[in-house]
Every structure is written in C-alpha cells, then in structure tokens.
C-alpha cells in the first residue's frame, strides 16, 4: 500500500465537463454553429431596439423598396420593405424572436414529455415499456403536418397554440433516444451498486442515470429545435401558423410568394435566415455528439 502524502498539492483535476468544453472549443462545427446561433440570439434580443422602424409600421408610400445591395436601395431600409411598406429588417429581427420562442418552447414541452416517458420505459421495462413503446408507435404513425394543420385550423393559430401543438407532437424522438440510452445504463454496474447501497429509485434516476444520458438529451434537443422551427415555418407558410401581422419567417416567405418573380429577395432573405438558424442549431447538435461520444469509451 502506498504511503499517503496528505500534504501533496491537490492535482489540477479537470472535470469531465471542463474536458468536454475544451474539446468542444476545438471542434469546428460547434464553434461555427454556436457562434452563428449566438449572433442570431443576440440580434433577436437587442436588434429591434437598434433600428428606427417597428415591425408593424406601415408606410404605403415606400412599398417594395429593394434592399441596399440592389439598385434603388437605401440605408433607410437596409433589407427593403414588403408590400405594405413595413421595414423588412425589423420584421426579420422580430421573426427571429418568434422562431427562437417556438424552438425553445417546443423542445421544453416535448423534451419533458419524451424524457419522462423514455427514461421510465428504459428503467422499469416490462409493462411500462410496453405502454410507452405503443405510444411511440402511435405517435410515429401519426402524420405530423396533417395533425398540426387540423388542430390549428380548429383551435385557431397563435404563438401559444403552435408551441403547444408542436410540443405535444415532437416528443417521439426524445422518448426513443432516452429509452435506449436508459436501457443501456439500467444494467450497468454503478447503477446496480447504487441499488445495492439502498438508493431510492428517484435518486438513482436523477443522480446516476440522468447525468449520464444528458449528452444524448442535448443532441436530440438541438435537432428537435431545428425541426420545430422548420415546422412552424411550414405551418405559417400554409397560413395556419402564427397570425398574419406577427412577423414569422414562414409567414414572410408566404407573403412574398405573390411577388416571387419580381421581388425574389422577399423570399430569399427570410429563407436564408431560416437556413442559417437551422444549420447553426444542427451544427451544434452534431458537434456535441462528436465531442461527447469518445467519453463513452
């Protein structure tokens, strides 16, 4: 037995989290994705305070002003105006808020439902697993867009309704992934050890299982957030998402559709914004998967 030197300095012990953070910063996808995402979030939060125009302010004398890089553009409206003379940059920035709210709100609801169902199914197995697996199968055989369309057209579209409907529909991937990763851990020896020590089931779930399935949860969260943002755009494009004066990127594309051939920037600007947001979220998600997987040996 080695002699114990109590006076030895405490070794600089990077925690798994800190080691992971270091790996994440070295990962190209994560840095680019997180950087873009951060820029979008910052712009969505403070952007509207920095520009003179409101997203609802109409100016019928300045309709369909082209953006600054096109002939006839001016610094008054850097991204131009739409058919009602509303400043496109202001609408884009407010639209970012809507998209982010939809993204975060949806994954919060869906993540809670899916994680509870998935972890319960994975840990308890047996009957619980059978019921959850059945629910997942039902959900997977439900045509997502059709159900969302039907519900929104009955209840009426608003930000809250869209978040709620998407949240209640998009939990399946959370449940599937959480179930699989919990199952792997259920029989692992540190969980058995915790049971043999006499830990209660809630304690095992929160202290032994959850911290070790968190990586997977984060990856699914990012992917589903992107999914929700795209679905909202689809619903709004079809006229069943958020209500018209609200500046949603999907709605902006829908409104620009009429003048697609003459003023294509009305579609390309919100389209590019949507692409950038979804791409950055996916980059972060994929990156987190890359960064965390070597730790699972």
């Amino acid at each position: 037995m080695a002699a114990v030197d109590h006076n030895a300095p405490v070794e600089a012990a990077p925690s798994p989290h800190r080691a992971m953070l270091r790996r994440a910063l070295a990962h190209g996808g994560v840095t680019i994705g997180a950087g873009l995402l951060l820029i979008i979030i910052v712009m969505a939060v403070i952007g509207p305070f920095l520009i003179a125009h409101g997203p609802y302010d109409q100016d019928l004398t300045a309709r369909l002003v082209p953006p600054i890089w096109m002939e006839g553009g001016s610094w008054e409206h850097p991204f131009g105006t739409d058919q009602l003379g509303r400043d496109y940059l202001a609408r884009l920035l407010y639209g970012a808020r809507i998209s982010l709210m939809i993204g975060f709100g949806t994954v919060f609801i869906a993540g809670t439902i899916g994680t509870v169902l998935g972890v319960a199914a994975g840990y308890f197995g047996g009957r619980v697993d059978m019921v959850v697996t059945f629910l997942i199968s039902v959900r997977l055989s439900t045509p997502l867009v059709l159900v969302a369309l039907a519900v929104v057209s009955i209840v009426g579209g608003s930000l809250q309704v869209v978040v709620l409907v998407l949240g209640l529909l998009l939990w399946d991937r959370f449940a599937v992934v959480m179930r699989a990763s919990t199952m792997q851990l259920r029989a692992i020896e540190y969980v058995t050890a915790a049971r043999a020590i006499g830990c209660s089931t809630p304690r095992i779930l929160t202290r032994e299982i959850m911290p070790n399935v968190m990586n997977n949860l984060i990856v699914v969260t990012t992917l589903e957030m992107a999914h929700a943002i795209l679905l909202e755009a689809v619903l709004s494009f079809l006229g069943l998402g958020v209500k018209p004066p609200t500046p949603s990127w999907g709605l902006m594309i829908a409104e620009g559709r009429e003048v697609l051939l003459f003023e294509p920037w009305l579609i390309t600007i919100p389209g590019l914004a949507l692409l950038t947001l979804v791409l950055s979220i996916n980059l972060v998600g994929d990156g987190i998967r890359d960064v965390t997987s070597p730790e699972d040996r």
């Binding site: 798994p16 020896e189 540190y190 058995t192 915790a194 043999a196 006499g198 830990c199 911290p211 070790n212």
Partner: peptide, 29 residues
Amino acid sequence: IQPIFQDPYASLNPRKTVADIIALPLRVH
C-alpha cells in the same frame, strides 16, 4: 452486505468525484 463488482470501469459513475462516490452510502443511510 455490500458488493464489489468485476469491472471498475463500469462500477463507478463517470460523472461523480471519488469523494462523492465513496460518500454515497453515508448520505443514503
């Protein structure tokens, strides 16, 4: 009665410090 398992790579929670792992039985009881 307490167990010691075969695989020390699987029997310790990778997210906990040595102190937390050893102190767990004391806290639980």
